[in-house]
Design a protein around this nucleic acid. Sequence first.
DNA 1: ATGAAAGCGCTAACAC
DNA 2: GTGTTAGCGCTTTCAT
Lengths: 340, 340
Amino acid sequence: MKDVARQAGVSTATVSRVLNDQPNVKLEVRAKVLEAIEALKYRPSRVARRLRTNSTHVIGLIISDIQNLFFTSVTRGIEDVASRNGYSLILCNTDEDLDRERVYLEVMHDENVAGIILASASETGHDPELYNSHIPIVALDRLIKDVPLDTVLVDNVGGAKTAVTHLLSIGHRRIGLITGQQHLTTGRERQEGYEQALKEFGLAIDPVLIRRADFRQVAESRQQALELLTLPQRPTALFTANTMNTLGALTAIQELGLRIPDDIAISTFDDIPWASLLDPPLTAVPQPTYALGKTAGEMLLARIADPDRPPTQIRLELQLVVRESCGAHRRMNMAAGASQ
Amino acid sequence: MKDVARQAGVSTATVSRVLNDQPNVKLEVRAKVLEAIEALKYRPSRVARRLRTNSTHVIGLIISDIQNLFFTSVTRGIEDVASRNGYSLILCNTDEDLDRERVYLEVMHDENVAGIILASASETGHDPELYNSHIPIVALDRLIKDVPLDTVLVDNVGGAKTAVTHLLSIGHRRIGLITGQQHLTTGRERQEGYEQALKEFGLAIDPVLIRRADFRQVAESRQQALELLTLPQRPTALFTANTMNTLGALTAIQELGLRIPDDIAISTFDDIPWASLLDPPLTAVPQPTYALGKTAGEMLLARIADPDRPPTQIRLELQLVVRESCGAHRRMNMAAGASQ
DNA sequence: ATGAAAGCGCTAACAC
DNA sequence: GTGTTAGCGCTTTCAT
């Protein structure tokens, strides 16, 4: 920067003004500075700038499973908003580990990022002080209790209820559930939706039919599905609460040689990728992942711009997608099918 | 930091020494400083530290498609190496756009990261000077020509050759190819492997059978597959060069009502997720994604530790996985099948 | 409209 | 062993 100033015959202060598009720089001086910058291939240091101004354009993103298409798709949404507004992303993967999450939150703080988007590994969260730094935090996909944060979620209860109601409406009365961790909003609320749907049909909740399998673990989900499907009184339908739960269930169904939908119906939360390749295709409640990310990004930018606005919570609505198999598919041999 | 120094009754220099685990600090002084740090909940600023020391523990990762399971799995490998060594990751997604890539390279430079791992959007790369900064760069999965960088790749030619040879060895003589962008090492080399395999069997290369579809685009791949499969002289087998190419091909096969492997055989580079759910399961040459990431991460750390070591290139070997359908699967209706 | 100078939070010579 | 001090590259008063 000094070099640029010397080359242009001005002070570093003027160079800084040009860099930051401030007024009060004569047009010809500005041109001269620009020229010098060009000639010297000068690039300002973001680090120095960040030190001086307390934070520049970096957003920290803390997610719990980078191999989950749900989160990468969300990330894509955030990234687009970020890069469109001149922000870069620091991505961290906690692997659902609360300790790693805490470390990353501290790192983000030490990096002095402009803001954080956090898909927390637990609703319980950490000491409140960790959230009370001057750095804005948006909670993504999962609530954090007792802390008034901006939050963007999907309507887990409603979505699950819709999917289960669909199974009920086509006649199923004994429906198994495979859902994820109870300390996650997603795992808990999707079970809540399942239960609400059953209650509305006047059915009792049978604890035997309610199974839990880590949202990351296909193998665990498979195991739970195997148990459900070998019950003396086998359920006639399954509702699975995320993609891994679904894949595990499909694997189990396959291993047991059951046919969909004749032997067992299935509907799922959180679409499985390339579901259309299946025949009959899977009935699912897909999540608006990209929109989730976009919303979270925009919320964070809004809060950065105005730290004093009241905390907002947004819940995105979900829709059931009932996929019908069409004639062309009929000759194909497919892996799994819809509930109908 | 000043506060800590005051509280502990020492100078900031001593605090710094304690922070950096330097010798020459009396045990009791160290204890006092640690205590003050604790009491004040002091955390050192990574930004200031980075400014002062020219780079701290941050690695920039620039990938071309964050929604591609290949890259997230690689990322996972890098992340593990990074976090185990106290590094954090800045992740950027170029969407195969060379301009975005350039911007991100500059941002990484401005952020003064310790090193960069780059899956470039083109073999041609940028002006050499962009690579000649003092910041180490490791090229990942894709070569960058005319620049002597550390590079970690897979054996694309060998892998493709193996997959195609498998098709040839079970009798196929008319094999269609769907591969990706020619300016990517991966797209080009996998075609090379296809051609080598044919030549070894004394077969001519038929340009009509060689198709290209962007590695990100299932739709494009489907289109190319449709054209291949409706050729007057239809190929009896397909070799697809990555997951999206494969999914497109499977969609086309499904739409045309063809059966695998009776009507059309298929073998693929780059496994498709949950291939085992398919019956007959897909024969594929999966990539050691996690190992790729781990290797890239380790290479970068090695170079950071010793900037003067000569550039290394590592190519990971690949193996064909021929999946057999087993009895239990037979009753399932499945989406797609193996080549055999 | 521009320059001089202070300082963001830290590290590293150098002095004692 | 520990303190003093200069400065990393930038922004931002405060003069002029």
